[in-house]
Design a protein around this nucleic acid. Structure first.
Length: 725
DNA sequence: AATATTCCCGTTTTT
DNA sequence: CGGGAATATT
């Protein structure tokens, strides 16, 4: 047997028939529909290694993952399989940034562009709204941001959108979009969506480059294909146009980023896009117990817009899935902490345990309880670290030094630490810049006469000298450069004075320096620009340590692709999961089904033990509000679920104790009450507003209809919770 | 110019 | 509840 045969065998051992089929497939389009826990990652890594040992060099392979963490894990696993280095494994965004650094000059982009994060973007947008002549009360930066982001994900440029015309709103937004793009261009900056849109447009317009790239990346693998948006879809298609060597893997039931422009149709219509496609279905689950998988399957079966898929496992039955109710979030968190405590006492390890929730804000109560109970934990929140003031300050200096046109960063550091350059002075410089048609930084760095700045002239000169001096540090490796910048800029001295017992900014800065040193060690050829890029593209789960001996907390979105033996999912309440915006009257069915998929993703992360919980009162907007048990809970099969607690056993937690007639005292009516209407049938109170003269309720009926009523006059009768099933 | 205070708004999920 | 911005004070 030759070495090659032996190796090929090694890459196929332990795989099922369909898994082997996927690994052995080399040329032509391949779609792998992979249910949760079906060994998808194993198949992808083996296939990448297989390609690299048979038909291509690692250099010719491009693998796209959803997070940086997934990328580095995949890279490691592929290398462990004996495929040599040199494969490109990255997220779409990282790939986009890389391509634009090298080829961006073809579309007038200089290679030292800055990537604006959400904060920066908001600031620019706010300015754009004002410059365009509108008020941020009519066009909120948050909404406008989403709008423009969606346009970019659909590959609609300013020109495309302006050409569409439309009413006042569309035309105003088009104007704002135009100013926004202009401000970005002037600052030599791109936002997240540009990293995709620019590449897609570049590939569409520049056939020479497209051919060159396709020749390089002969085999393209894309994971989590169900969560690709139009821009990503087009990039993938352009890169594989001639050879059609595209391998898409994913699961329509795990599509949870529709709100971000992801189009589930991309995976559903793969076979139409690529008529020659080979399709492999991986339906056997190796991760979860029968109970957990049964619950997941029952839940997802309620989705109407879905291709039915059978999930099965040969694993043990396992313990039943547990559901419990508590009064409020604190008690819920205490209960979770207690249960974890008990698990640890039985010899379990904290790293086996994860807690998932719908919104980041919900981590707080959990953190407090874990802290109190003495359980070590980590929270998946990569972005939060880089959003800290002190971190943004340090990175601000770096950004200005790398890209002097970056005015968002410049405005941040010009008077941080305070150096006597206040608003008045900045305004004067700004005015001068406009007069002379130059950039802010050009005025500051010019040798010219600063006398127009009056008293502050000296300060500005000093600032200029500081920047000139710091510029030299860019020649140093990132870690050393940072250390020097922190000291010379005066940030170190400033933050030394801000130390308090519960907050130490310098410690965070130190951590940043360490991160830079680590990056430098892992990427010896990378410079400051690459490191800045790295910090801009970091994701929430990227900071999660698999080896750390602690419980992991994260949002359900961040949990995608991971697995844990013991999983808790908290906050199963209507309004939270499924999430509902307040007073959004038309709840889109597809949004609703996406919420169900989100819970499905959460449930299927669990290997052995799954616990779900909900509370009667949840804090929202600083107020405690009555919450109703999530309707998803009633979709779970009774036999596989154990309802904890005596009083609420089997009933699943009755939120009140009065049945039957309309109570004289309407104080007993609240969100979550079950009601019956003589014509409409059974329904659930989803909105409740007590006015001076009457009480208005909004009822969601089983039929799907939703209607408002005035409680005092409506023919509504209270019913028991169970009757709603 | 810098700091202290108040008030008001939005209020999911993230590369 | 918490961040940011507008306002008041030193």
């Amino acid at each position: 047997m030759s070495n090659l045969d032996e190796l090929q065998n090694r890459l196929l051992t332990g795989l099922t028939e369909p898994q082997q089929k996927a690994v052995r497939h080399t040329d032509g389009p391949l779609l792998v529909i992979a249910g949760p826990g079906s060994g998808k990652t194993r198949v992808i890594t083996r296939r990448a290694a297989y390609l690299a040992r048979t038909v291509a060099s690692p250099w010719n392979i491009l693998a796209i993952t959803f997070t940086n963490k997934a990328a580095s894990e995949m890279r490691e696993r592929i290398e462990a399989l004996g495929a040599s280095r040199g494969m490109t494994v990255a997220t779409f965004h990282a790939l986009g940034a890389k391509l634009l650094r090298v080829h961006g000059e073809r579309v007038g982009l200089s290679s030292d562009f800055t990537i604006f994060d959400r904060d920066d973007r908001r600031k620019v947008l706010k300015e754009a709204i004002e410059v365009a002549g509108y008020s941020t009360t009519n066009f909120s930066p948050a909404n406008t941001e989403r709008f423009i982001s969606n346009l970019k994900n659909q590959l609609l440029t300013v020109t495309d959108f302006a050409a569409r015309g439309g009413g006042f709103r569309e035309r105003s937004l088009s104007k704002i979009y135009m100013v926004y793009e202009d401000l970005l261009r002037k600052q030599n900056a791109l936002d997240f969506d540009d990293l995709l849109m620019r590449v897609a447009l570049l590939l569409a317009e520049d056939e020479e480059l497209r051919v060159q790239l396709e020749d390089r990346y002969r085999y393209v693998l894309i994971d989590e294909y169900q969560d690709t948006n139009e821009a990503q879809y087009r990039i993938a298609a352009f890169l594989t146009r001639e050879r059609q060597n595209i391998c898409a893997t994913g699961d329509p039931d795990q599509s949870i980023y529709g709100w971000r422009g992801a189009n589930i149709e991309n995976i559903l219509s793969f076979e139409r896009d690529y008529p020659d496609a080979t399709v492999v279905r991986l339906e056997q689950n190796y991760r979860s117990t029968k109970n957990i998988l049964g619950v997941a399957d029952a839940l997802i079966s309620h989705n109407k817009q879905r291709k039915v898929k059978s999930l099965w496992t040969e694993n043990d039955e396992g313990p039943r899935v547990t559901v419990f109710e508590r009064e409020d979030a604190n008690e819920e968190a205490n209960a979770v902490a207690e249960k974890i405590s008990a698990y640890l006492e039985e010899g379990g390890s904290p790293r086996e345990v994860a807690i998932f929730y719908r919104t980041n804000a919900m981590s707080r109560a959990l953190e407090e309880s874990l802290l109190k109970t003495g359980i070590r934990y980590q929270v998946a929140r990569g972005l939060e670290f880089y959003a800290r003031k002190e971190i943004k300050d340090v990175l601000g200096y770096l950004r200005v030094l790398v890209n002097p046109a970056d005015e968002v960063a410049l405005m941040r550091i010009i008077n941080t630490p305070a150096r006597g350059i206040g608003q008045t002075t900045v305004d004067r410089i700004l005015q001068r810049a406009v007069q002379e048609g130059r950039k802010l930084i050009e005025i500051i760095m010019s040798e010219g006469d600063f006398s127009f700045l009056k008293r502050a002239a000296k300060k500005v000169t000093e600032f200029r000298d500081l920047l000139l001096s710091l510029k030299e540090s860019l020649e140093l490796p990132p870690g050393d450069a940072l250390t020097r910048i922190v000291r010379e800029s005066g940030l170190e001295a400033m933050y030394k004075g801000e130390r308090t017992p519960d907050r130490d900014p310098l410690e965070n800065i130190e951590e940043l320096v360490n991160a830079a040193v680590e990056f430098q060690r892992d990427n010896p050829n990378a410079g400051i620009i690459e490191w800045l890029e790295h910090t801009a593209l970091i994701s929430d789960v990227d900071g999660v340590e698999d080896s750390a001996s602690c419980v992991t907390l994260m949002t359900l979105h961040a949990a995608k692709g991971l697995e844990f033996p013991v999983v808790f999912i908290v906050g199963l309440e209507d309004g939270i999961l499924p999430f509902e915006r307040e007073f959004a009257d038309s709840s889109d069915v597809s949004d609703f089904e996406e919420e169900r998929r989100l819970l499905f993703v959460g449930i299927t992360r669990a290997m052995k033990q799954l616990t779900l919980s909900y509370v009667k009162y949840r804090m929202r907007m600083g107020k405690s509000q009555r919450a109703a048990r999530s309707r998803f809970l009633s979709e779970l099969p009774h036999a596989d679920v154990e309802w904890e607690g005596d009083g609420v056993a089997n009933s699943g937690g009755v939120p009140f104790d009065i049945n039957g007639e309309l109570p004289a005292d309407i104080a007993f009516w609240e969100v979550g009450s079950i009601v019956e209407h003589p014509v409409m049938g059974l329904g659930c109170v989803v909105g409740f507003h007590r006015g001076h003269r009457n009480t208005r309720v909004e009822v969601q009926f089983k039929s799907g209809e939703r209607k408002p009523f005035i409680l005092e006059f409506a023919p509504l009768t209270r019913r028991d919770y169970d009757e709603f099933e």
